[in-house]
Write a protein that binds this DNA or RNA. Sequence first.
DNA 1: ATGAACATACAAACCAGTTGGTATGTCAGC
DNA 2: GCTGACATACCAACTGGTTTGTATGTTCAT
Lengths: 235, 235
Amino acid sequence: MTGRSVRGSARARLLDAAVTLIRERGLSATTVDDLCTAAGVTKGAFFHHFESKEALAVAAAEHWTVTTSALFAAAPYHDHADALDRVHAYLDLRSALIDGPPAAYSCLAGTMVQEAHASSPPVRAACAASILGHAGTLEADLAEVLTRRNAGTDVDAADLARFTQVVLQGAFVVSKAADDPGIVLEAIAHLHRYIDCVARDAAPSSPRPGNERSGQRHQTTQEEIPMTRSPRRRS
Amino acid sequence: MTGRSVRGSARARLLDAAVTLIRERGLSATTVDDLCTAAGVTKGAFFHHFESKEALAVAAAEHWTVTTSALFAAAPYHDHADALDRVHAYLDLRSALIDGPPAAYSCLAGTMVQEAHASSPPVRAACAASILGHAGTLEADLAEVLTRRNAGTDVDAADLARFTQVVLQGAFVVSKAADDPGIVLEAIAHLHRYIDCVARDAAPSSPRPGNERSGQRHQTTQEEIPMTRSPRRRS
DNA sequence: ATGAACATACAAACCAGTTGGTATGTCAGC
DNA sequence: GCTGACATACCAACTGGTTTGTATGTTCAT
């Protein structure tokens, strides 16, 4: 298989294997032996680097947080001058990343927390940090979108940021059920429309020029993906 | 515990136990022995009624579909004369049902499908039928809300119905991560607002009288729950 | 008395974690 | 610049407990 690799890489290989396998099969269906085989290491190596399977799950969630944070921090959607444009460009990026089987586009934290929320507080906390932390990165842009009339009264930026992640997580679940990634694209399209809706409510006095965003705005297609996907694995 | 009960009830007791335990711990973390203990039956009874653990999971999903269908079919939100009112009342009911730990308010199908979608086609299909079937019950009302201008062009009723379930499923996931049922209530509040938004876009020529729905419309509180919750268990 | 609805005991496989090693690098002291 | 003590990174075999499923009864209603 993968030729045993260099010394010192076992931990990283186990974390990558964990992200792949857990997204595919869930946490408790992924055995330590599965992980070792996928990573090309032995059980001894596993328990040298991780105190327990639970500890690996926490480390995998943190690894996921780090890699996805880097992906989104480096993405070009931040470059738009207008906050509303940045939010829409973020959603376009999310759409562009939907490709292949659910294991390739769904969220590790969302997958794990369903199984672990009641049984493992550390795993739950790591997943919460991942999801809510990512929501936090959207808050400033959304706050700017809302800072005309709506601020504080009706829609809260932190609340709205969480809602975007709620929609994405739910879209992953339903797309797994329906076996159809199109569900996620539909859901993101609704998010675009909803954001426009609250933005319009927020700033009716200052209509933004040339923004009659009707459904398909500056949508990036699957072919012109703005940047390569980092945690993609072969089947 | 529960005193062995009457003969002939083993199957039903196992299904109830399955709904409870799987919502709490997930599918693969719920063992056959756990189910037998919780249901107060023996392994012999289990394998008398179900060919395998997977078969029980399918049956549990179907049982879930039947009980929740009955709950929502009997709910009074259908009585509103106006379609938009019916949709809002449906969401109010969903809000009213949010109480207790995640296992008490979250969806069995959404929980199971995360673990089973790739490993068990029958379970995936049963979960898809449950979620999409429930979405289907909203479609007619949403279609009526949209039948003025938007029909077919921008927002599709089936798509919008699925989106409501996407939001609920995602809210369950994030509320488990954050350990906060309030996330679900927030998400439903956004759904109210979004539905109003697409309804306004759909019918600007016929403004509905006295419907300046601002945030807290005819919201049923936790105290005046319209009907009792059927699949609620004690901890 | 016959079949459906259970119960009891058991088996084979599996799984997390342990034990007791070996290989490799590092660094102090000479 | 070499050596020996030590630490880190790994490996293979094993263990005790768990898990799904089976084999073989027993009970009870019709």
